[in-house]
Nucleic acid binder design. Sequence first.
DNA 1: CTCCGATGTTTCGCACACTGAATATCAGGG
DNA 2: CCCTGATATTCAGTGTGCGAAACATCGGAG
Lengths: 167, 167
Amino acid sequence: MTEAHQGGERGDDIHRIVEAILYLYTESRRVTKQAARHMGLTGPQVSALKVLEAVGDLSLSELSFRMSARNSTITGIVDRMERDGLVVRERSSSDRRVVMIRATEHGKEIARGVPLTSLELFAGALRALHVEDRSALRRILRDLAEHVRAEVEEHEREAPADGDAPP
Amino acid sequence: MTEAHQGGERGDDIHRIVEAILYLYTESRRVTKQAARHMGLTGPQVSALKVLEAVGDLSLSELSFRMSARNSTITGIVDRMERDGLVVRERSSSDRRVVMIRATEHGKEIARGVPLTSLELFAGALRALHVEDRSALRRILRDLAEHVRAEVEEHEREAPADGDAPP
DNA sequence: CTCCGATGTTTCGCACACTGAATATCAGGG
DNA sequence: CCCTGATATTCAGTGTGCGAAACATCGGAG
């Protein structure tokens, strides 16, 4: 994946940077998944627990929005997590249609335990960098993320994400 | 994902850097997936086509190694891609056990078309950075990747990934 | 040459994730 | 009250992913 990118002098830096980011995230995901397996969880389950841990109880719709998935998908995931005692469903008293998803103590405990291995991987490597490199990296990535965010918004405006399905 | 990380002064830089990388890759994956859907492809299929496009024909084992998946998984993916005319299987003449996977012209065309939206997203943002920031980023990320690679190797040595199953 | 272990691929059974199309239930306005 | 829209679930279908086992082939030992 290093050469063979027609022409390829101009975008050399860019190409290598993208490559490095892809590698770093792929590796992180692999390790997370493996760590999750050790505790009997799957990727989306860890993700759901982390969201619940961070922002508190959520309705199923809110949870699916935060996880960028459909309600029917999240229903299945919550089913399995409820089966395994990680979360509980509670019908809202104010609006009896909505179901609040709440992480159990067991679920929270696991959520706190799992992702550390993945973050520790980065943390260890980042600690090995010089201090000035760290702050430079932080600044550059922040700028980068901002540019990407802007481009994404513009991109979305042109090509909406199949949100409507008229009958 | 910004607060709620017990204590959290020491690893501030680190935390934010990890956050940025996660954001960048998540965003890239989301956009890629969406673009892939538009052309009737899935994520792994795009990934496979990109690998084949980059390094040429590969055996099924080599392809599964590069995609970090098992042979049986890749068999299924290649099945569907062959069904859709994106790749062809060719038995090697030197070793009749191995099956070479080759992207068809149609497959290559689609591979060239799809990922651009995702890479362009990064490329555009990266071009907006100063030149010295780009080379600094490149150098830092390379160092970082190397550290992570080393840690992963060490980590694997302690906790092997269920690879052996003695009879 | 024949047998036997190693290697490459596929098949099979299983579980999860994900989607879109119904469906049941509830909230609120006319 | 009835209609509309929102919320959650169910269902059928596809894709992904794994491990165990079957299968073909290769390579070397005897």
